[in-house]
Design a binder for these strands. Structure first.
Lengths: 140, 140
DNA sequence: GTAAGTGCAAACGGTTTGCAGCCTC
DNA sequence: GAGGCTGCAAACCGTTTGCACTTAC
């Protein structure tokens, strides 16, 4: 599958850099974190561009957005299909999980109440095995 | 079960007013909306107090907080048990729904990956029957 | 009388936008 | 060469905090 999805998205250095960072990421990052990572790599990308690129990618469905308590949005490159996330609240590692039962339950419940055009959001938070064994380090 | 849960919560006019508005609400309201409703009633309550009261109530488990796309928190008085919400994205009406299957699925998935201390969030969005028949009025 | 609660205003943090210049197509 | 893309700074919005005053207990 190629990237021909976008109609008029130009291939700029900044856009490539953002995509590259996301491609290597295995957990959720905030826009500001991504911006910092970019600058550490020596890429000269403005925070504004990071936001705009992220919005574009999210709009194109290439990345997933999460809105955890705290106010900042977290972004991650994701598989194409619909899925949910199991996120470690200590280290931020995220596992993609599928739950057909949840999908069908949500639609069934919505249908029972006569709701149309149904969508849903679900996130599971927990402490991953590695962080559970370590002393509970809450962001040193 | 009574409301003796709070150690040192005083009964002030403002706290009562906020609780009263929430008691009549059947859908989610933002802190600012609640503040506006309070002022329309003639109650002299500061926005700060609304926020603080809301935090206290949420902390005591008496109300439920939702964080929809848009950045503002929505509050609603809720039943005690764990449940989820089916929210109309047009009129804001919210229905409390229970999903034991979802609860067990979330815990099972988390356990499969070795995650401990698991919690989860889930919201279902859709268009309720009344709003579906009406022309799509986005906030009258 | 004392400590919690309140309210104003200012600070705060993340996000968005206006606009001039740059760069891709 | 034209239009999108970038980046700086400032605006924006909801939320939180400092501090002095008020109030419930």
């Amino acid at each position: 599958m190629n990237v021909e999805t976008n109609a008029a998205l130009r291939n700029t250095k900044q856009r490539t850099a953002v995509s590259a960072v996301l491609a290597e990421a295995d957990c959720f990052y905030s826009a500001q974190e991504l911006h910092a990572m970019l600058r550490e790599r020596g890429e000269r990308v403005g925070l504004t561009t990071v936001y705009r690129t992220l919005q574009g990618l999210a709009d194109a469905g290439e990345i997933d957005v999460m809105r955890p308590p705290g106010g900042e949005h977290l972004y991650r490159r994701c598989g194409q299909g619909h899925h949910h996330h199991l996120v470690c609240r200590d280290c931020g590692r995220a596992v993609e999980v599928e739950g057909p039962a949840v999908e069908s339950w949500a639609e069934r419940v919505a249908a029972q109440h006569g709701f149309k055009d149904v969508s849903h959001t679900m996130e599971i938070f927990g402490t991953c095995p590695e962080c559970a064994t370590k002393p509970p380090t809450t962001a040193p």
